[in-house]
Amino acid sequence: MPVRPRTGLTVTALAGVLALASACGTTSENSGQGKQTGPSQAACKGAGGSFTIGMSQANLSEPYRQQMNDDIARAAKGVPQFTVKFADAQQDNSKQVADVENFLTQKIDLLIISPNEAKPLTAVVKKAYDKGIPVLVLDRKVEGEAYTQWIGADNVEIGKQAGKYLAEKVLPQGGKIAEIRGLAGSTPAKERQDGFAQGIQGHNIDIVSTVDGDWLREKGQQQADAVFKAHPEIQAVYSQNDPMAEGAYLAAKAAGIDQRLKFVGIDGLPIPSGGIKAVEEGRLSATFVYPTAGREAVGSAKQLLIDCKQLPKTQLLQTSLVTKENAAEAYAKGNS
């Protein structure tokens, strides 16, 4: 189901709750970056041009990434000059490198990429950029500065707010929890872990087990099942995305302990199988909406290729907390 992602970043001071702010992406004044002076000017042909965009996706096993592709496809339909070609790396760094090389052979006009892992994709992204092809990096990052614009939300901050929510609302007296991380080499996994550690600091929260779920529900379920058997004292689970949180919930339900555990996730997709419905239906205590950046990527591509505008190096997007109290409203907003 297509949705519109949200943009901009705002954090309230009340219990670490993230609040909804504007519906627009930020620009250079709050990204802390100057104007981009890379290959965008040479790539621009104006409204009379036609453009082929290559979209290299890390994988389509995560609902979030399929939604990102859907958002790009839907937004691109509104720009008749654009043709978008999609490639699925299937969580394989080598395949994603080959996908980008294939796009370069096809002489694409712009590359959009959400890297599987940062380091292995850095060189091929730089190769595209050095050829004068504008590169938009979504959500996950590459190393260095050889790209036109990165678009995403603040993963350290979202992890921090998840930690504060769990510490202040779920376990205000302290307690023992498990953490399920995403793919180890992807930048959001480290950033959401670092932020979470900041959020729970000083709240007597003990992370008794940290496991890798690779962003996938099935692996999250397997890992959680092993954790619950090894650490029956666990009171809550922080998962770096909603599918892994749902997997942990299923493991807990199979073990008959789901009623005494609390689950917090990230992504908040407003689709029937997404995190907002999981909160509304009581499987998760909370999730945090993390925009896909699909619509914003097409907007940036239009500015570069058709409007001949320069872009800030970073476009920071808004995120928001979803609890039982506002889940129905958040779901409706996401589908408006």
Rank of each mutant, 00 (worst) to 15 (best):
I266S: 06
S239M: 10
Q240N: 05
G299I: 01
M244T: 08
G202C: 08
A184K: 11
A301R: 04
K190D: 08
V227A: 05
E233F: 03
F228P: 15
H203K: 14
Q221K: 12
D206G: 00
G182F: 12
V237M: 11
H231W: 06
V279C: 12
V211I: 11
C308M: 12
K262R: 15
I257D: 09
G220Y: 07
D307F: 14
D242T: 02
E296K: 02
Q193R: 15
W215M: 15
L305H: 06
L269W: 00
L305W: 02
A184H: 05
K302L: 07
A251G: 01
S273P: 02
R217F: 03
T292W: 01
R192V: 05
A286E: 14
L250I: 08
T287Y: 05
I276R: 04
G213N: 08
S300R: 15
K190S: 02
S300W: 04
F196E: 01
G274S: 03
K253D: 06
I234H: 03
L305T: 05
L183K: 09
Y238W: 13
P270Y: 08
Q201W: 12
A301I: 13
Q259S: 06
G220L: 07
K190R: 07
G274K: 01
D258Y: 01
V298D: 06
A197S: 13
I276V: 05
V298T: 08
G268P: 07
D307K: 11
I306D: 04
W215N: 14
I306H: 04
S285D: 14
I180D: 06
Q235E: 10
L269N: 08
R192E: 07
W215G: 08
A226T: 11
I234K: 01
H203V: 00
I234P: 02
E281A: 12
R181S: 14
E281W: 03
